[in-house]
């Protein structure tokens, strides 16, 4: 009856209705963390590992990809549940697919390195680089939409398509997990999606874009003509 430990935590978390209709998160991150403190230490460590694997917020601007792939492998192996490992693989595969589609759209050839990304399908993607859907239309039915969005530069629809795909996957998984650790992880990942969607801000995006441009220009920034 180890599962009983999760009843209090899961019933204390407010229901998340929908992604795109949400205006605010149903619970603040501060309150969520307080509730998550009910988890045993081992579960908390696993949850932190999964969040670190799936979120890029903590990464610097200069990402060492090889180190990131090694770290992902290491963190993935520390996840005790097969369901959660499958979920992490699915999300990482999704990242690899989107990265491959973007690279191909920019005219890049298939990566030469065998271990060029993370997840479980990077080798398959590399060998199907020239197929329109990377040979994965069955597993990822949103690939044609992403291709079309990249072609038409419709970045808003692209972002919504990807968020919706993750939302649906989590919703599907949540029907099989009600009061266990997997259900806690699914809740936190759904909360993160809502948090991400509700925090999109035009002004902040512009400010971040200018910041990235400044970082890219580096010392050449001052040599540009002032507008």
């Amino acid at each position: 009856m180890a599962d009983t430990a999760y009843y209090t935590l899961l019933t204390s978390l407010p229901h998340i209705d929908s992604l795109f209709n949400s205006r605010i998160t149903p619970i603040s991150r501060f309150q969520l963390d307080r509730r998550l403190s009910m988890l045993p230490q081992a579960d908390r460590d696993t949850l932190v590992n999964i969040e670190n694997l799936l979120h890029w917020d903590h990464l610097d601007n200069d990402v060492d990809e090889e180190r990131l792939i090694r770290l992902a492998e290491k963190l993935r192996q520390q996840i005790p549940s097969q369901t959660l490992r499958d979920l992490v693989d699915w999300r990482l595969d999704m990242r690899t697919v989107v990265s491959a589609l973007r690279r191909r759209h920019q005219g890049e050839a298939a990566p030469t390195q065998p271990k060029w990304s993370y997840g479980s399908r990077y080798e398959y993607i590399r060998s199907h680089w020239n197929a329109p859907t990377l040979g994965l239309a069955g597993a990822f039915p949103w690939i044609p939409t992403v291709n079309e969005c990249l072609r038409t530069r419709d970045h808003v629809t692209l972002e919504k398509t990807l968020l919706e795909a993750v939302w649906k996957q989590l919703e599907h998984l949540s029907t099989r997990h009600r009061f266990d650790f997997e259900a806690v992880v699914i809740y936190v990942l759904r909360w993160n999606l809502v948090s991400r969607w509700t925090s999109y801000d035009e002004n902040k995006a512009e400010s971040r874009f200018r910041q990235l441009v400044d970082i890219s220009l580096g010392e050449f920034r001052d040599q540009l003509p002032q507008v």
Binding site: T4, Y7, T8, L9, L10, T11, S12, L13, P14
Partner: peptide, 14 residues
Amino acid sequence: CSVAGQAACGAMLD
């Protein structure tokens, strides 16, 4: 009762 009671305690927080 323990399982249901834990759920009730959690619900009371929300």
